[in-house]
Amino acid sequence: MIWIDTLAQGILLGGLYALFAAGLSLVFGIMRLVNLAHGDFIVMAAYLILLLVTLMGLSPFVAAIIAAPVMFGIGWGLQKHLLNRTLGNDILPPLLVTFGLSIALQNALLEGFSADSQRLPTGAISTASIDLGVLTVGVLPLLTFGSAIAVIVGLNQLFYRTELGRAFRATSDDATTASLMGIRPGNIFAIATAIAMLVVTLAALYLGMRSNFDPNIGPARLIYAFQAVIIGGLGSLWGTLAGGIIIGLAQTVGAAVNPEWQILAGHVAFLIVLLVRPRGLFPRAVD
């Protein structure tokens, strides 16, 4: 019985990791850029929500709705004015610029909010649960998982059903040719990063409601997100969800065996997949 419970927890935790990873996957898919500050942006969005909650007395959900357009704007500006200047054949500039951004962001948050652990106030929802007969699952983990699926369905719809999605795919395939067709790659990239920041805000909302956070946890979130993307296979959002679930399962099972092994178990699962399927479980992109 306890094992079924552990497995269910692991799968639901995977939803949170898929939310961490979806933004990373989206940005990489379109412009081959890995934002090393991705985890720190999640933490920053969590603090933004916390700030709105404490200053205006809002519920975290309402605060996230207000924070989302702010993060959208930050993402747009960041891509348009900073990251677009680093794109090119050389992989060094984007890596080093986003790494510098990660260090700067962490320490700015540390200076602004101190190293104390914070948590978003949740009220009744954090303890509410649903009885499914064989097991009982929390409403919040279920909501997280549902949001992850909604985000992936939404992004896939955006990608394959809309004009913007067509522009995304065209730019991803060949930015030069796309620009001949009247698309401005710089703007497309800015919109992509801005959308990724919307997903980041959602991830931050659930991160902040489910666990404590402090300015230093960003890099670990980046690593989980990265592992989910690689396990799933580059370019496949459903694969990213599967990758998130695998990391979530490995961590929960590892923690059930020995609490010290939680994080290590996730890393080991990642290395095993890398060993057996170097290109991930559901590879789509060629690179």
Partner: peptide
């Protein structure tokens, strides 16, 4: 200056990479 030191280092890194790679 504590964390401001690392913050500054991060910003200097970004600026150098953009202005004088």
């Amino acid at each position: 200056y504590g964390s401001w030191y690392l913050f500054t280092l991060g910003i200097i890194g970004i600026v150098v990479m953009l202005v004088a790679p």
